[in-house]
């Protein structure tokens, strides 16, 4: 694609050549700013053994503006809502142009390991996590088995 910044080309090359463990990101052929992403649920978390699909889009302003990332697989997590939108500071006000696709996806993977119900996006899930963490984790596990195959 003509006019694609060097930054995006290089990042894509590195992602393909040296992918982060448990993470894949593949650009679409017809739009090199649009990526199909998969993240493996981290071991030891209720999302373990799940394979989560996400979409990632690099806006025109990237890297001055953060990439747009969304879960496509249903997930029971206090910081991810029904539409798959993610509440993560580096995707909003804590974005820095020095961050990359790889670091963003690693941060999302880390968010799966350590949900933060004090800063919730899905308020009902967050309430569940705060009141009965064990039971909430059980639901997360169930959903992982149901949807993230």
């Amino acid at each position: 694609m003509a006019g694609l910044p060097k930054r995006i080309i290089k990042e894509t090359e590195r992602l393909m050549a040296d992918p982060a463990p448990g993470i894949t990101a593949t650009p679409h052929d017809d739009n090199l700013r649009y990526f199909d992403v998969t993240i493996a649920g981290p071991d030891g978390s209720p999302f373990a053994a799940g394979n989560f699909r996400l979409e990632l889009f690099l806006p025109e302003e990237y890297p001055m503006a953060p990439p747009k990332v969304r879960f496509l697989t249903k997930i029971y997590h206090p910081n991810i809502d029904k539409l798959g939108r993610i509440c993560l500071d580096i995707l909003k006000d804590k974005w820095s142009p020095a961050l990359q696709i790889r670091t963003v996806l690693l941060s999302i993977q880390a968010l799966l390991s350590s949900p933060n119900p004090d800063d919730p996006l899905a308020t009902d899930v967050a309430k569940h996590y705060k009141e009965d963490e064990k039971d909430a984790q059980r639901v997360s596990q169930e959903w992982t088995q149901l949807y993230a195959k």
């Binding site: 910044p5 060097k6 930054r7 290089k10 990042e11 890297p63 142009p97």
Partner: peptide, 10 residues
């Protein structure tokens, strides 16, 4: 080693 800008990779 030549300098590579960590933002634009120039």
């Amino acid at each position: 080693e030549p300098f590579v800008c960590p933002i634009c990779f120039d």
